[in-house]
Design a protein around this nucleic acid. Sequence first.
DNA 1: CCGCGCTTCGGCCCT
DNA 2: CGAAGCGCGG
Length: 821
Amino acid sequence: MMTPFDPDNTPTRQAPAGVPIIVDGGGPGGYAGGYQSPLLEGLNPQQREAVEYRGPALLIIAGAGSGKTSVLTRRIASLLETREAWPSQILAITFTNKAAAEMRDRVKAILGQGADGMWISTFHSSCVRILRREAENAGLSASFSIYDSADTKVTLKRIIKSLDADTLGFTPGNASAKISKLKNELADVDSYARNANMSDPQEVMFVEIFRQYTQRLRAANALDFDDLIGETVYLFRAFPAVAALYRRRFRHILVDEYQDTNHAQYSLVRELTRPVEPELADEMETTGVHVRNLRDATGGIPGASLTVVGDSDQSIYAFRGADTRNITEFERDFPGTKVILLEQNYRSTQNILSAANAVIGHNFDRKDKKLWSAGGDGEKIVGFTAYSGHDEAQFVADEIEVLHSAGMAYRDMAVFYRTNAQTRALEEILVRSAVPYRVVGGTKFYERAEIKDALAYLISVANPNDELALRRILNTPKRGIGPATETGLASFAEANQISFRQAMRDSAGLGLGPKVTGAILNLATLLDEAALKIDPTNPAGQANVSELLTFLLERSGLLTLLRNSRDPQDEARAENIEELVAQTKDFNKENPDSGLVDFLTQVSLVAAADDLDDASGTVSLMTLHTAKGLEYEAVFLTGVEEGLLPHQMSANEPGGPAEERRLFYVGITRARQRLYLSLAMTRAQFGDINVAMPSRYLQEIPVDLIDWKQSPGMANSRGGTQPRALNARRDGFGGGFAKRGAPEALPPAPKPKTEWSNRVSQVRDNGDLTLAAGDRIRHIDFGDGRVNQVTGDGTKRIAHVQFDTTGAKKLLIKIAPIEKL
DNA sequence: CCGCGCTTCGGCCCT
DNA sequence: CGAAGCGCGG
């Protein structure tokens, strides 16, 4: 890996010479033996076995950082290299699209040629692919829409409103959670209704909500996220001949992050790995699907070989249905399973691993597994207790700069947090300190209103039955079509058993005003014209996605309106839409054979971790959930407080605290060389200041592994607003923090609430303040200092300042709270 | 009937 | 701090 920063110069991370590819977790190297495939070079015995074992089922229990991606990749390469499998016979399921792309690249790099025909993708992408191909059998049109959670909530909101279900306590949030949970268990309305207690009015109402929701999605030719998996399973169960096609095709199925699969995903894997009955094999042969060389003695096709990789200790998605029983009961489910344990860690220092082992050891009901490294102890973990979230952010920014000046690239550092709300304080300080950073996930590009609007135009063209998309654009941009007209159209459609789109075309007969009617007809015509542009029978040829989007934007006036607006926010919105247009152009270039529906699918299935850009050269900020599967030289794990980690919400749920501990464990094990654990004694939330206690998990880490720059016991003995990041004592262990004072013992908040909130949200602007080397300045937190150097230009000018008492800092001149003396 | 600006309230955990 | 809910003017 690209790791210039390596204080201990540990040799384990160097790839053995002669290996054509660079793979992390390369192992101890130095294999002394006769010839062997380069595929096995640098692997330890367990890893080697995991690559070479052949059998019906293989379970690889892979601890964090044990080189499992490398093993999976080489296993695929090995199957292809030995001609045991064609690329098209391999189905590899990863957790994110990014992981899929990476795996594909690595296999290509090993084989030195394209591995076309392989399916390497996420559960959801694979299922969409299958469902679009088999749409007819699934009772869908191939251009079905995919509803995200926001779409689901809007739909449920309308249903709840029409049923007055809010009086029974239903909200879009709780209803969607319940429906999702049921779908993850492969329950549908009918199966649920059969077992429901129909004397409970709330149950009756829920069944009605669920039923209407299902109907609306059907009518809109749409599937929600959970349906993608469930419908594929139903499809295979209802149409054995269809299932047989895929069972015949995929001879080797590999699933990563198996501990995070839910019941529906488990069932899908089960369906895909079932054998094909002899009769069905006969049938396939007669229809020209060759199965002869796949048949066994019985005349059927044996089930595909299944490889799963997982680690129960990293299961962090129980809240959305992941079931670790899938992994703990794997051997029972798939008889003849071979189990391989990967415990040697090639990522982190022993100190980091010891902390991780100690923490996860507090979870009972787990198979004992101890990660170990041959790479030496490394640095101690650094602990820091800040007075406030603001203060904590300052510590992070300062330490990032220290690491950076020591030669570590920004992109090798990451800051983790439990909740997205914590980004605000971090971002504020990082911007002020001129640290380049990037928030991974968070408010996603495709969730922005203007992007959803533009996409709704495209969806309306691709899937004319999608009422949700149509209603979204009906009055966007403003056409004078209000909610009353909208409901009028909807009930007209309902009453006449026609689609919403058709109701728009027929709106002349509704007796609406001429202006409104004209507006509706205009939009209907625009969409019809757009649909013609991508009609395969159009003699004029077909428009690509970017041409279509440009046409829709121009004719609807959406983009022009934003551009001409005086609201500065609209400028940013226009830029976002232009970015979307640019994305469609890239898409056309990269996928010349793909069309509108493919583009929309890709957009629907991006996950938070997918927009990670390794080449960006910035510090990455993300939630602990997003961090899974990633690794960094230095990791800052912030907000290690009771109520945050473990999170308040987890306390009531069974297994909650244990899952939170795994989340903490996942965070710790992302770090290669340096780990920082920080917490804040007080944290601003919802405009209030809350007092926090150190997380219980901190006490689970042996004290000699942590070097407390400021221990929890020390922080509460001080008050005031002086920065403590740099004048902190270095007296070793955080002695006595387990017995530290109760919250009441804390000093009062330093400032009144209002003033505090203002300071956080206030965007300071120093205008054209100019600074030059030699100037003396005063900083609101750091005191007086001398400017050494000014770099950058325009609004990005950065002052390098040596403060008299708080050391060297970089400050963004435009917004730093400074004044010239 | 629609659009806009105002006030108010409740809301943030993770996908 | 942002969405929902209102009351008014067009």
